[in-house]
Each structure stands twice: as structure tokens, then as C-alpha cells.
Amino acid sequence: MACNRAAKSGFAAEAQRKINSKYSEELAQECLEWIRVITNEPINVSGDMDNFYETLKDGTLLCKLVNCLKPGSVSKVNRSTMAFKCMENISSFLNVAANMGVPAQETFQTVDLWERQNLNSVVTCLQSLGRKAHKFGQPGIGPKEADKNVREFSDEQLKAGQTIISLQYGSNKGANQSGISFGNTRHM
């Protein structure tokens, strides 16, 4: 756990301060309120780092969250407070979140939560999962994700598009680049 680690110093402490500075209490509070609504658990929804960490560190609430979104997704939730059991809960949550469509770049590593290394990445993961909740019939958080808009063009339409001059190529209305001298120095 985080209390078993030696205090960081030097560059490591500076890097940790930079990571912690990205943490948003407002987004964390929004995540905890969303978790409370979905799971019906009486949790403290204060967004400060200490409360956020204490609420989620053992992974049981995270497993309950994904089981509410997608029933039966985590078959065994460990109630033990032993480190490897708690980390197993967090890992189970991460696997289900990835299967529910949370992109890999928006997930976190188990130690980010368990050892309190990067709580901002935990918030990012929960925000991403919250955007996916609409697909599972639950209220979500954040902006609604866009639906795929696949367009089909016939060969005739594609050939017609090749005859159009793009405005990036210049204009076909008489404009040209005369008078522009390349390589001229800036006069001061």
C-alpha cells in the first residue's frame, strides 16, 4: 500500500507533484456521485484526493459498478483487505472496462489506484466508462459519445469527386501567387 513506500524525494517527488496537479476535484466528485447513483451505495462524494482514494482503493465498489452496468461481468468480488485480493478486484474492473469499450489510453494501471500513484488516470477511466453507460441503459456522465456515421459512395460519385479542385490547391477563380517572393528577409 502507499503507506509502505518511502517518501519520494528529488526528481521523483517533483514528478509526483506534477502528476497530482492534474487531479481535478470537480471531476472526481462527479465520478463519485455517478457511482453512488448507479450502485445505490451510501458513499461520501467529496472529490478530495484522500476521500477518492479511500472510497475506491479496495476495488469492491468498482466491481459493483461494472456489475450494475453489465450484470455478472465480475463473477467474484473479493471482500478481503489483503493487498493482492484488492489488486485483483481493481484488475477485474479494468478488464471489464476494456471489454465495455474504454480505450487503453484512458485506463489506468492497478498500482495507480492501489498505491495512489496517479489518481487522475483513475478519474479519466471512470469518466470514459461514464460516457459508455448509455449503451447499457444507465445514466452516464460527460458528453454523449457520437454514433458511427458510415457513408457509402458509388463509383460514379467517387469519380465525380476527383474532378473537383480542392480549395487547398488554390483557386480556379484567377488568384495566383505572383508578387510573393520566397526567401525575402524580414525588414526591421
Rank of each mutant, 00 (worst) to 15 (best):
R5N: 07
K8D: 05
F11M: 08
A13W: 02
A15I: 13
Q16F: 12
I19C: 11
N20T: 09
S21L: 06
L27I: 09
L27R: 14
P42F: 10
I43T: 06
N44Y: 11
S46R: 08
S46P: 08
S46H: 07
F52Y: 14
Y53H: 09
L56P: 09
T60S: 10
C63D: 02
L65Y: 02
N67Q: 07
K70V: 05
P71G: 02
V74F: 00
S75Y: 09
R79D: 12
M82V: 11
M82W: 13
F84S: 07
E88K: 10
F93T: 11
L94H: 07
L94M: 15
V96E: 12
V96W: 01
A98R: 10
M100P: 05
Q105S: 11
Q105P: 02
T107M: 12
V111H: 15
D112Q: 11
Q117L: 11
S121D: 08
V122L: 13
K132G: 04
K132F: 00
K132R: 07
F136H: 04
Q138A: 04
G142H: 00
P143K: 04
E145H: 01
A146I: 01
D147S: 01
D147P: 00
Q157G: 04
K159P: 02
G161M: 04
G161E: 04
S166I: 05
Y169K: 07
G170T: 08
G170Q: 07
N176P: 06
G179P: 06
S181R: 15
S181T: 15
